[in-house]
């Protein structure tokens, strides 16, 4: 639905991320098996499934946190498409700091709890060579504003923040370098519903405004309904169904997807 509204530009012709035959095994058990998809610039893809279905394994392999056993993850870098699985670690980590972002479910995993909010947002800037304190602080202040954190909280530690604020801070910290691809692992998990709604609203605004491509892993169908253009349903490490979000949710074909959709209480 949302893809149709968005105007197509020249570089949306080439996929930002191509995943081909990605597999990860834990000994004899399957983490995820033979996953393939293309992600285009500005597109938001949701990955849903129950616990243990391989969503997080897939996301870790895509983001380079874990080496996959088979398959290729081709990212459209500034210097043309490159396979991130075989690229040097130094290069992959540099990409993870600039072109990519990773939003963890638990903000404690993504933030430095002992460092002030400003320092947390500024870290990625300093990591790519920013050496002017005034500029770093101005950018951090600007970003705190964009995620609705008051500017006078800039020198407070994340410990002093509520769960929702911590999550928004984590998002600011990740987006400050203007990444093109964002990985999100249950970004709304552990937040109460009204805070969830605000966070989703904020995320949707940022995604539109910055033209981000997002891969979002969640078990909350409401989240994907709101954010995702496309949907991939996983079970037992395999992709059982994929398609446009509304199509999959309104007319599920696979038995597991039908179960998933019907398990949600309609209030």
């Amino acid at each position: 639905m949302t893809t149709a509204i968005r105007t197509l530009t020249a570089d949306t012709d080439r996929p930002l991320l191509q995943v081909q035959g990605l597999s990860k095994y834990y000994g004899n058990r399957i983490g995820c098996a033979d996953v393939s998809f293309d992600l285009f610039p500005g597109e938001v893809m949701g990955i849903v499934g129950e616990s243990g279905s391989g969503k997080s394994t897939l996301l870790s392999c895509l983001a380079g946190h874990m080496p996959p056993d088979k398959g290729r993850v081709i990212f459209d870098t500034a210097a043309g498409p490159r396979d991130t699985v075989t690229m040097a670690e130094a290069e992959r980590r540099r990409m993870a700091r600039t072109d990519w972002a990773f939003v963890h479910q638990n903000p404690r995993d993504g933030l430095r709890m002992g460092v002030s909010a400003g320092g947390n947002v500024g870290e990625r800037l300093m990591a790519i060579g920013a050496r002017h304190y005034g500029d770093i602080r101005a950018t951090a202040t600007d970003w705190l504003g964009r995620v609705e954190i008051a500017a006078d909280r800039i020198d407070d530690r994340p410990r002093a923040f509520s769960g929702g604020m911590q999550q928004r801070l984590q998002i600011a910290r990740n987006l400050v370098t203007g990444p093109r691809l964002v990985f999100m692992d249950e970004p709304t998990g552990g937040l109460d519903v009204s805070v969830q709604a605000r966070l989703l609203d904020l995320l949707r605004g940022l995604v539109r405004e910055m033209g981000l491509s997002v891969i979002i892993v969640t078990h909350d169908l409401a989240v994907v309904r709101l954010l995702a253009d496309r949907l991939m349903v996983m079970k037992g490490g395999h992709v059982v169904e994929q398609g446009l979000t509304d199509q999959v949710l309104d007319d599920p074909q696979h038995a597991y997807t039908q179960l998933l959709v019907s398990s949600v209480l309609q209030v």
Partner: peptide
């Protein structure tokens, strides 16, 4: 980058 976070 982290070393500069300390100075920041």
């Amino acid at each position: 980058g982290l070393m500069h976070v300390k100075l920041y």
